[in-house]
Design a binder for these strands. Sequence first.
DNA 1: TCAGTGACTTCAATTTCGCAAGTAATTAAG
DNA 2: CTTAATTACTTGCGAAATTGAAGTCACTGA
Lengths: 120, 120
Amino acid sequence: MSSDNQFLRSGCPIVNGLDIFGDRWTLVIIRDLVCGKETYSELADSPEKIPTNRLAERLKMLEAENMLVKELYQSKPKRYKYVLTKKGRDILPILQDIAKWGNNYVEGTWAPQEWFMETV
Amino acid sequence: MSSDNQFLRSGCPIVNGLDIFGDRWTLVIIRDLVCGKETYSELADSPEKIPTNRLAERLKMLEAENMLVKELYQSKPKRYKYVLTKKGRDILPILQDIAKWGNNYVEGTWAPQEWFMETV
DNA sequence: TCAGTGACTTCAATTTCGCAAGTAATTAAG
DNA sequence: CTTAATTACTTGCGAAATTGAAGTCACTGA
């Protein structure tokens, strides 16, 4: 009986969340998808200017984690849009709380659009 | 007039939150402080086994960001405990939401103690 | 005097990251 | 028919960050 652990670091739900989206770019991508962006180039166009290799890599990871699905919206040439699943959309409350914290404690940060913070 | 930006990446409150605590270890440290840990060795003892150089560096950063203060609790030898400020304690809702997401979507994760999830 | 403890620091070996440039498929323009 | 543009990536490389292990320093207690 091997003591192989199904978890990377521990069974803590916080740690396991962070091991999926707790990096420099993943929540930025999800923010943009929640806000209506759909294509690769729309996502690449954020004010934060994510490097394209990082964007491609994170999108693959999010797809592998079933946080989003790729949907063909044009066949010649093949073009896909990225659509959040419920698992991905359920990140929204986390984004809202981070945005609230950021607005409270980091001076000069933008106020998100009203609909984004709704029900918080 | 230089166009020097006060922000690392953008004025987005989410991005600016992440630029403080959106790394592999910071929220794990805050989790443990919220849960009652106070000293360096208590923090180093987590199941995730944070490398000690990382722990020291993140504690210095959190102090510089006024997320916590170092309090002397013994003078020979000098020993400090780490205490969250309001700015640091206000991370709790974010931790609660991540924990909820983790429990919902990562199979086998621990259920946090009841008090931790209170009022969520 | 000497092992032990708490709180770090230092260092070498990866790993990850960001930037720039390149590629592939296809459409549009001349 | 040839060339330029567009979208969506991929490749390569140096720089920066992370890890794990070991070392340091100030005491304390036996």
